[in-house]
Simulated scan of single mutants.
Amino acid sequence: MDTILTINNLTKKFGYLTAVKDLSFTINKGNVYGILGPNGSGKSTTLGIVLNVVNKTSGDFSWFDGNTTTHDALKKVGAIIERPNFYPYMSAYQNLKLVCKIKGVDFSKVDEKLELVGLLDRKDSKFQTYSLGMKQRLAIASALLNDPEILILDEPTNGLDPQGIHQIRTLIKQIASNGTTILLASHLLDEVEKVCSHVVVLRKGEKLYSGRVDEMISSHGFFELKAEKQSELIQVLEADANFSSVKTEGELITAFLNQPMDASVFNKLMFDKGITLSHLVKRKESLEEQFLKLTNNQ
């Protein structure tokens, strides 16, 4: 598998503050990676370092085969790490033509990318007439003009309304399906779960998890249960090796599974033990629940 970016023991300090601490992960071609963490967890700083706009304190990173200079590598990278900044009185088409001149890209790319982001019918409208979502889509079109191998987005849906969020997420999936690798920073669990194939979870600059999203949420799930013989049910669950832990909140019992088990099998098992369940729901742990476990509910 082709490697796009390798980060090794990267650290960045701002005076006494350590923004990124000993961070290592690898990005391979053809996936959508999310750097997930609350504000202040080091996401934007990490992106800034690999894009050469923030100086690292220690550690290293390399683009592609490791023999490409960062200057040359960035010619194959598209990035949006700040709010879209175009000339307000110029049209979308004029703004993108200007970007083409700066990047040394043929003007024919402008219509192609405007069509990709759904703005071709508004190409002659001035930038200042665009909604926030349209501005963000124009910024993505701009970042794609040089047909980059990787697109880097920092909080791509920040400040957008629900429709704008949906459009950007759909667009990210579409770009990825065309073979472009994507790296996005987000504090939104929902975003990472819906858009990304891989995730790096950060807290206070430190990596808590790195891997596939589906593996992070690949627990066997849990049962939500109610029964008249509550104490008997709890005793049976606590003695059963199929369950890792049992929690009780009022009448509701939550039993976390160690291995796969169907609700129907479990229901019969309880019935055979003389326990009739008045409530039985099987659920899968969400990314949010896994994230809270990783961050110790902090």
Rank of each mutant, 00 (worst) to 15 (best):
L47M: 15
L47Y: 03
L47H: 03
L47E: 03
L47Q: 10
G48S: 12
G48K: 10
I49Q: 00
I49E: 01
I49H: 02
I49A: 00
V50Q: 02
V50N: 04
V50Y: 01
V50T: 06
V50W: 02
V50E: 00
V50P: 01
L51F: 03
L51K: 05
L51S: 01
N52H: 12
N52L: 08
N52R: 14
V53A: 05
V53H: 06
V53G: 01
V53I: 15
V54A: 10
V54L: 12
V54M: 10
N55P: 07
N55W: 05
N55H: 14
N55L: 12
K56S: 12
K56G: 04
K56M: 11
K56F: 05
T57H: 10
T57F: 09
T57M: 09
S58G: 12
S58D: 13
S58W: 05
S58V: 10
G59H: 09
G59C: 05
G59N: 06
G59P: 06
G59K: 10
D60V: 04
D60G: 14
F61C: 05
F61T: 04
S62N: 13
S62A: 13
S62W: 02
S62R: 14
W63K: 05
W63M: 04
W63V: 06
F64D: 02
F64R: 02
F64C: 07
F64T: 08
F64E: 04
D65R: 04
D65E: 03
D65K: 04
G66C: 06
G66H: 08
G66F: 06
G66L: 08
G66W: 04
G66R: 07
G66Q: 06
G66T: 09
N67R: 13
N67Q: 13
N67Y: 10
T68F: 01
T68D: 00
T69Q: 07
T69S: 15
T69V: 11
T70F: 03
T70I: 11
T70Y: 03
T70K: 10
H71L: 11
H71A: 11
D72C: 00
D72H: 10
D72E: 14
D72S: 12
D72P: 00
A73C: 10
A73V: 06
A73E: 05
L74S: 03
L74G: 00
L74T: 04
L74Q: 06
L74F: 02
L74Y: 02
L74V: 04
L74K: 12
L74H: 03
K75H: 12
K75W: 01
K75V: 01
K75D: 01
K76S: 13
K76G: 05
V77C: 10
V77W: 08
V77E: 09
G78F: 07
G78H: 09
G78N: 08
